[in-house]
């Protein structure tokens, strides 16, 4: 590593003394290439994280003077019933959103065939992922409508009572999660389809000769080979679950009675809407969400670091 300052190249010895720039070009070049990207990233992503930590210690309406109040915002969080609801809902999102992984695997296994027109089927199964969450939210809120919605038309057609999913505080969050699972499952499906494409046919054959089939084959032969796909599916699903905002904003706007709030949405509400511009309190909520995310980010980075090290050795 430290030898990288002197390029190990047979330079033509035209000039005896290389300039400082030439001697250090293996350090200077990458730095110059990194500079614009890092500058942007630092200004808009890295510094703001620390600024938010700072703002969370203040009482501030975003315009006037900010007053330092120490940890008072965090103390207020402890007794804030809405914060508690948001936290519990975040947990529901995290757990239920992970269903996208087995569902995606199931659809991928169903579609991993080579019949006529299968490519079009794969594209059409995948395509909910391309829609914006706003559109997905609208589509599902109309789908759930008590009178006009197709879902209730089907339910009542089968002889059940109609459900007002988004109007019922006990059901609304699950209704939104179901809407979120739609594109997320499509994403996991495409990851697994790509993974299945790369499964080693010889190992499958060997497994067959050993008498493995169906579930056993899937569990002992196929899934281990799908590990990279599963890892990525896990990463994007966890991040997606904790980032959920658009769907809630579009489908229920936090209601009914604030029952569908999650941290990301509650933070926005506190800092930037009719609840008054409480930037400090909002930032405190954001910090909590960030710390939850950090646990997962740390885990992902650790996994990637291990892969890096292996790649370097191999």
């Amino acid at each position: 590593m430290s030898s990288s300052t002197t390029p190990a190249l047979p330079m033509h010895e035209v000039r005896a003394e290389a300039t400082w720039l030439q001697r250090n070009k293996m350090i200077v070049t990458p730095l110059l290439f990194l500079l614009p990207g890092m500058l942007f990233f630092a200004v808009y992503v890295i510094f703001p994280i620390f600024q938010s930590f700072g703002i969370s210690l203040y009482r501030w309406d975003g315009l006037g003077e900010a007053t330092y109040i120490g940890l008072a915002n965090y103390e207020e969080l402890l007794t804030d019933r809405n914060f508690e609801i948001s936290l519990v809902n975040n947990l529901k999102w995290l757990v239920l959103y992970l269903l996208a992984i087995p569902l995606g695997l199931f659809i991928a296994l169903f579609l991993n065939q080579t019949v006529m027109g299968i490519r079009l089927y794969k594209s059409l199964f995948f395509f909910p992922f391309v829609l914006s969450q706003v559109v997905v939210g609208l589509v599902f809120s109309w789908f759930y409508l008590p009178r006009e919605g197709l879902l209730n038309t089907i339910i009542t057609g089968l002889g059940f009572d109609s459900l007002n999913i988004l109007g019922d505080p006990t059901l609304a969050t699950y209704g939104i999660i179901a809407a979120g699972l739609w594109p997320q499952t499509a994403y996991c499906m495409i990851l697994y389809l790509t993974g299945l494409n790369a499964v080693d046919p010889e190992q499958v054959e060997a497994g067959r000769l050993d008498g493995a089939k169906g579930w056993k084959m899937l569990w002992y032969v196929i899934l281990p080979q799908l590990k990279p796909a599963t890892f990525i599916a896990f990463v994007v699903t966890i991040i997606g679950a904790l980032r959920s905002f658009d769907l809630i904003s579009v489908m229920t706007n936090g209601g009914p009675f604030g029952s569908t709030r999650v941290l990301s949405f509650y933070m926005f509400e506190r800092a930037l809407s009719e609840f008054g511009f409480r930037m400090g309190y909002g930032s405190a909520i954001a910090v909590v969400l960030f710390l939850i995310m950090l646990v997962f980010i740390g885990y992902f980075l650790w996994q990637m670091w291990r892969d890096e090290r292996e790649a370097r050795r191999g």
Binding site: I49, S52, G62, L263, S264, M267, G282, F290, M293, M304
Partner: peptide, 17 residues
């Protein structure tokens, strides 16, 4: 890794600044 980590953070921690 700083680029990767930054890419995963929740938007809300960046929002106010």
């Amino acid at each position: 890794f700083m680029f990767i980590a930054g890419n995963f953070v929740p938007f809300q921690i960046l929002m106010v600044p």
